[in-house]
Structures are given as structure tokens and as C-alpha cells.
Write a protein that binds this DNA or RNA. Structure first.
Length: 101
DNA sequence: CTTCTAACA
DNA sequence: TGTTAGCA
């Protein structure tokens, strides 16, 4: 599934992404090791954070301040993405049904 | 820029 | 446990 949407392509270096979210660079690397996100890498191996990644990082900050630990955040993010997928599929199915009527 | 290690609250 | 600083 190659994602060519612009939000998944606006890439920043780790220093820029860290400043946007308001955390240190080491923290972003920790988030990746904990499985919270997987930013794209250049051929040389440097991380490239997209606008979608930044959005996720901001959501991570909300969940952390809500009292969750990183393991909890990882689960919530997984549930939220699957939930979005289900909503999209439901909207599609409802659209198909509506056209048959 | 990268990973790794150690220290702090 | 999560974050930060320093090193290679």
C-alpha cells in the first residue's frame, strides 16, 4: 500500500519534528522503539517525519498527559486506527446501499 | 544525523 | 517508567 497522500509525505528531520511537538529528539527515538510510530527513513537511514506522524505525536502527548504509559498509548493508537478503518468501510457500504435504492 | 549508556524524578 | 544528557 503505497501512500502518496501529501500529509504522509511532508517530511521533517527529527530535530524539526521534536520542536513542533515540544519534546526532545531522544524522546522521539524512544517512541519509535516502543512501537508508537514508524517514521520513514531516507536511503541513508535518517528519519523523515510526515505531517501524519506529527499529528500522531501530538495525540501521544494528549494520551500521556491523560495518565497513560507508552504501552497504553500504543494500544490506544492501534484501536483508533482500526476504528477509523471500520468507519471508512461502513461509510462506503452505506453509500453503495444508498445507490441501489 | 545515528545508536548506546547512564542518571534522574 | 519516561525523559534527558553525553559519548562514539
Amino acid at each position: 500500500m503505497t501512500d502518496d497522500s501529501p500529509s504522509a509525505r511532508g517530511v521533517y528531520g527529527i530535530a524539526v519534528a521534536a520542536e513542533m511537538v515540544g519534546v526532545g529528539e531522544q524522546t522521539l527515538r524512544l517512541y519509535e522503539r516502543k512501537g508508537l510510530l514508524t517514521p520513514n527513513r531516507t536511503a541513508g537511514g535518517t528519519r523523515r517525519y510526515s505531517d501524519d506522524d506529527v499529528t500522531v505525536l501530538l495525540r501521544v502527548g494528549e494520551l500521556l498527559s491523560a495518565g497513560l504509559n507508552l504501552a497504553g498509548v500504543r494500544h490506544v493508537l492501534a484501536l483508533e486506527t482500526s476504528n477509523d478503518e471500520l468507519r471508512a468501510q461502513l461509510a462506503h457500504v452505506l453509500g453503495v446501499i444508498e445507490q441501489r435504492e
